[in-house]
């Protein structure tokens, strides 16, 4: 594929940028995301996930079944903070990024 082809349209990440991450050892969507912001725009990876998995598959010969799903966090689609907080007494009970951290023997697992 042409190297300039856009893969993540929200963050304008090109094929070449995804390729570079793979050359540096990236093997999952989240690897690509952390290094390029691929999938971090308004659509929240709803369009580029499959494209990135296919590029990893083509470059590494890893079967698609060994390229894991990206992490899907709350909120599942973009929402205004105002809405998230309105009348919400149980707000902090919504699974948040902090809830993902599990402490074991005083240390992050």
């Amino acid at each position: 594929m042409d190297k300039t082809t856009i893969i993540c349209r929200c963050e304008e990440i090109s094929y070449e940028e995804v390729e570079e991450v793979i050359e540096h050892g990236g093997r999952t969507f989240d690897d690509v995301k952390r290094l390029t912001r691929c999938g971090m725009g308004p659509c929240q990876a709803k369009i580029c996930t499959g494209l990135v998995a296919n590029i990893i598959h083509e470059h590494t010969a890893l079967p698609l079944s060994e390229i894991p799903l990206q992490r899907m966090r709350m909120p599942l689609s973009p929402i205004k903070l105002e809405i998230l907080a309105t009348n919400s007494t149980a707000f902090s009970a919504v699974k948040s990024v902090l809830d993902e951290v599990e402490i074991e023997d005083g240390k992050v697992r």
């Binding site: 809405i83 998230l84 309105t86 707000f91 009970a93």
Partner: peptide, 22 residues
């Protein structure tokens, strides 16, 4: 209405674009 996530007690968080409720 859309699902935005899950509460720790297992209830589902919905939004009507004005507020979020379980």
């Amino acid at each position: 209405h859309r699902v935005i996530g899950l509460y720790a007690d297992g209830s589902v968080g919905l939004s009507d674009e004005e507020k979020v409720f379980p």
